[in-house]
């Protein structure tokens, strides 16, 4: 039972790491600010959820699991607002310079 739990937790951690990797590859490879944000926010939030779930399983305590859930919700919130601000800013910059919407500012 405990072996099965550990294996499942390890699998969740690996899945989380994979999502982070995918998000980072997207951040580096995608051409403009909006699609980079798309890659980063979606993949990283799922990755963090998966890693939090894996850690909670390993800890095996309700208190720790709830704390990890709170951490995930806070990170989700911060990611939402910062992604929103960056997207807004890059749209405005694009409007100012008259270029295509979503072009990276630098």
């Amino acid at each position: 039972m405990s072996l099965l739990l550990d294996a499942f937790a390890a699998l969740l951690l690996l899945i989380g790491a994979f999502f982070y990797l995918a998000g980072t590859v997207g951040l580096i490879r995608f051409p403009d600010a909006l699609s980079r944000l798309h890659a980063l926010t979606k993949a990283d939030n799922i990755g963090l959820l998966s890693i939090c779930a894996g850690s909670a399983l390993m800890a095996g305590e309700l208190r720790v699991a709830l704390l990890l859930l709170l951490i995930w919700l806070m990170a989700l919130f911060a990611a939402t607002v910062s992604a929103h601000l960056i997207a807004r800013r890059s749209l405005r910059d694009a409007e100012d310079s008259g270029a295509d919407a979503g072009k990276s500012p630098s």
């Binding site: 806070m74 919130f77 939402t80 607002v81 929103h84 601000l85 807004r88 800013r89």
Partner: peptide
């Protein structure tokens, strides 16, 4: 300050936390 409706919920949530 950025003018976006999201700032108020952000501050209201984050400040006490």
């Amino acid at each position: 300050a950025p003018d976006t409706p999201l700032l108020t919920p952000l501050v209201v949530t984050l400040a006490p936390l």
